[in-house]
Amino acid sequence: MNAMAILTERDRTAVRKEFEKLTGPVKLVVFSQELVAGDLCRQNEQLVREVATLSDKLTVEVLNPAIDRERAEPYRVDQVPAIAVEGARAYGIRFYGIPSGYEFSNLIDSIIVASTGEPALSEETKASLQALAEDVDIKVFSTPT
């Protein structure tokens, strides 16, 4: 029992149950920069590592955008702490800030959809999105509560 754990036993049990839906591997890429936001980056990294222990389909990579420049650049992440969620391909899913509360369930849901590659969207929506001729950047601002 780790006294400093962020996730409670109840959280872990709930997430493990959710992770029964995982089918393919998912990589969580954590962006940390000690000099910019040390405490937040450490908490974020710890949270991601705790989540990753809940399924053997999850792996974690930590990048410092200022040091691992070549590795970090393609992600176009301009804030820390941040997380990229990758499955069969680099889906372009990013989280800026520590995902807690609502954003935590959003992260778990994103891991599941990245793993299955099966978005819960109507056939019409999927067809429209696949026909896009331009890049689309969606930012969703939210708060923990």
Binding site: Q79, G87, R89, Y91, G92, I93, R94, F95, Y96, G97, I98, P99, S100, E103, N106, L107, S110, V113, A114, G117, E118, P119, L121, T125, K126, L129, Q130, L132, E134, D135, V136, D137, I138, K139, V140, F141, S142, T143, P144
Partner: peptide, 14 residues
């Protein structure tokens, strides 16, 4: 949507 299309990128911001 990001999973549905290579064109879509989604960033959740705290």
């Amino acid at each position: 949507m990001a999973v549905a299309s290579e064109r879509v990128r989604a960033t959740a911001i705290e």
